[in-house]
């Protein structure tokens, strides 16, 4: 437990220890370049979303030119900043907004479902001793490393038999029990010191109250991490709706249909992309520290 405390503590000791030396200097420069490069696609997506519709449409038409003497210009600034394309996708033409709401609905429902099921399962697997616990955990590990291609085929048959295929539930329900997040939360909860719950047990706090009042508050970082990672997964899901909702184009989320929109109406494509990124950006800003901290405190071996 001593080890855990040391890991958790932030090392903010100025002076000699913070000097990074020559190899640190090289790393600093390399990482700075890499981070700038990594940011380029995101920054340009936002920049291009403010270009007037005509200008952007004309620019995108220049693609696919196989003339060796022609280069595709890199645009740095619009002739005038325009918000007209945002107006079009948000108010004039509801197609985009509808898909956006579908995506939000799936992500919200899956996150709620996961919140109801996964912490409880992880708690039972980590803080209780019962027969078959290790076998059960091993089974979950095996399920975790099954590729989607393998679970998909039998799942479709099962969902069809349950009458859920081509309904919203086909996408939502299987994801609510995602083994990876059970694993992630369990690995965090096993590192919690025993004294934490034992102190409560002396005062007569049972397993349920111990879970709500002791374990959940301590698990804040990993819950945040799981939420952000799961959001990233679901906001970007393609395989599940494509297979489970193949007969229902109007139920598809934005992730599947966005391609279609951007080819059909190139003028608003970047505005759509920027709006699509925005929620992910908010989630990232709120939970970036949790992801790092939650994973750092887990027993990931």
């Amino acid at each position: 437990m001593n080890d855990r405390k040391k890991r958790g503590r932030r090392q903010v000791r100025p002076g000699r220890e913070s000097r990074i030396g020559f190899s640190g200097g090289i790393s600093y420069v390399l990482l700075l370049c890499l981070c700038l490069l990594i940011m380029v696609p995101i920054l340009f997506t936002f920049l291009y979303s403010f270009f007037p519709r005509g200008e952007m449409e004309a620019y995108l038409k220049l693609r696919g030119n196989y003339d060796k003497s022609v280069w595709l210009d890199i645009l740095y600034a619009p002739s005038q900043v325009s918000l007209r394309q945002y107006y079009k996708i948000l108010i004039e033409n509801p197609t985009y907004l509808k898909l956006f709401c579908n995506s939000a609905m799936y992500t919200g429902m899956i996150l709620l479902g996961q919140a109801a099921v996964i912490p409880l399962t992880a708690y039972a697997l980590s803080r209780f001793i019962f027969r078959g616990r290790d076998t059960l955990f091993f089974l979950i590990l095996i399920l975790m490393i099954l590729p989607f291609q393998v679970t998909m085929a039998p799942s479709v048959i099962m969902l069809k038999w349950m009458g859920l295929l081509d309904t919203v539930w086909a996408v939502v329900l299987p994801s609510c029990f995602s083994p990876f997040y059970i694993f992630l939360l369990r690995q965090f909860m096993v590192t919690l010191p025993n004294e934490l719950l034992e102190a409560g047990m002396v005062d007569g706090v049972g397993p349920i109250r111990g879970f709500v009042h002791v374990v959940l508050p301590v698990c804040r970082p990993i819950l945040g991490a799981a939420l952000a990672l799961s959001f990233a997964d679901n906001w970007n899901m393609v395989e599940q709706p494509l297979v489970y909702l193949s007969g229902k184009p109007d139920l598809q989320p934005l992730s599947v249909m966005f391609n279609q929109i951007s080819t059909d109406s190139a003028d608003v494509a970047f505005a759509g992309a920027a709006l699509y990124i925005l929620p992910a950006l908010f989630v990232y800003m709120f939970f970036q520290e949790d992801i790092v901290e939650g994973i750092q405190l887990s027993e990931l071996k």
Binding site: L34, C35, I38, M39, P41, I42, F44, T45, Y48, L60, L62, R63, G64, N65, Y66, V70, W71, L72, A228, L229, F231, A232, W235, N236, V238, L254, S255, V256, F258, N259, S262, A269, F270, G272, A273, A274, Y276, I277, A280, L281, V283, Y284, Q288, E289, I291, V292
Partner: peptide
Amino acid sequence: NLLLLPYLMPSSAMLLIWLIMFDYG
């Protein structure tokens, strides 16, 4: 934290800029 940012980006939204970067010109 910056290196982690792309993990949350939806790939279909990034596709457009990718197609522009990998265009013949």
